[in-house]
Design a protein around this nucleic acid. Sequence first.
DNA 1: TAGTGGTCTAGACCACTGA
DNA 2: CAGTGGTCTAGACCACTAG
Lengths: 253, 253
Amino acid sequence: MGTTQLESVPEPKYWHLKTVLSEALDSEFSVGEILPNERDLAARFGVARATLRQALEQLELEGRLQRRRGVGTTVAPPRVGVAVGGEQHTWPGTADDAWHPVDCVQAVPPAAVADALGGDRDEPVHTVRRSRVSHGQPVAAELLYVPASSVPDLTAIDAPSGPARARAVLRELQRLDLEGQERAVELGSARADDAKELDRLPGAPVLVVTTRFVAAGGTAALSVATYRADTCRLTFGDSGRVEIHHGPERKAS
Amino acid sequence: MGTTQLESVPEPKYWHLKTVLSEALDSEFSVGEILPNERDLAARFGVARATLRQALEQLELEGRLQRRRGVGTTVAPPRVGVAVGGEQHTWPGTADDAWHPVDCVQAVPPAAVADALGGDRDEPVHTVRRSRVSHGQPVAAELLYVPASSVPDLTAIDAPSGPARARAVLRELQRLDLEGQERAVELGSARADDAKELDRLPGAPVLVVTTRFVAAGGTAALSVATYRADTCRLTFGDSGRVEIHHGPERKAS
DNA sequence: TAGTGGTCTAGACCACTGA
DNA sequence: CAGTGGTCTAGACCACTAG
């Protein structure tokens, strides 16, 4: 007695710190509240700033905190559920599906995308940029790759680039008969351009949702959407009613 | 000329390092190959070890590298696609769905889970542990929460705990009429027990898939599955045929 | 036991925000 | 401008793995 339990396998300081901070967030802070700065916090816990930061990083990764350079660290609201449309197979751009077109250019896609589209690696495709906003915050940035062969009737009359062009490509896509779609989700880190769009630093963790649209037996379009991993919970199926949040734990049984 | 382009907004060293390493991985290394140790690499690039590690961490997050304490850093194989069953609404445990039961205990679930189940916060529920293996590697660990009311005919004859009990609970679940299911995916960090099961360190990034099974107008069961984010690509829908991998880029157009 | 990645320290300077 | 988080350094020790 007298000594705190001597752990034969002591957990790392930053791990313990994370636990302590997490409990403090539940009991002593409310959403949006600003935390003491990192130097003060580190001193208060008697650790180096780097160690404290390791704990803060994990909490930010879990969506509990939000840190902004020049501003400070705040308590994050619960993650917002964003529907990624599970069942119904629909083309992007129908009935304005929470996305809004930003731009469209004709460009040679990355090799991996070209391969998935099944076309020539050096063949330019329509590249539509769209962004998605939820609760006033940007949550996702998308690049939609559409081979020219998928939208044969696209007229040169439409603007050669820009939002108008993007809408034209989406409009032409609807004319195809959608046979199916395949979707995959994986972890990634934001490229510089996506990071800017998502109001994050480059390298920020994102959930990458890749969707392959199948029509006429081939890949008619490919969407690569990057969602902010810190603020988003992707929902599939009936609706976004699954609610498992981090919250104050109850006393053990 | 002569000077490399002076960047008005210089990118961080670790970011540039990551790019260089990434290209080296594409061109000079093959899957499974072991990299020089961190101290050597840092010296070779003329940076501190911490800076090099920042780059390695991101590459590991993106599934390009695999690091193991006491062993070294190796080039990771492409992420494996794991089907998370998109369309068909089925109970867990049917026709052995890639999962195998590990254990089952009766315990009071975390508050958030209890709330989702709609029951009393102090009411114990059947807690089934399952694990999922793909290509010989553990890829996911699951906790399936089943309220006693969902499996009323579970007899006391069955083992009170252990794999046999788990199978019994799953068997009883099948008798219910499944009305629908809701699924959500978000980023998390592995708890100590999950980390052990996944052969990772605690805090490792994981994709948390939460599934709510609806029957008789209520939540009949709740599954919380954590997938290794570094090695897994979750696929939904028809099959796992969407293949967008990091690969050697081609020369720009 | 030697070598690896994981943790930790105590500093320093930089980039950004907002008053 | 002062204050914040972001980057970086040059060390140290620890936990783990494998020969």
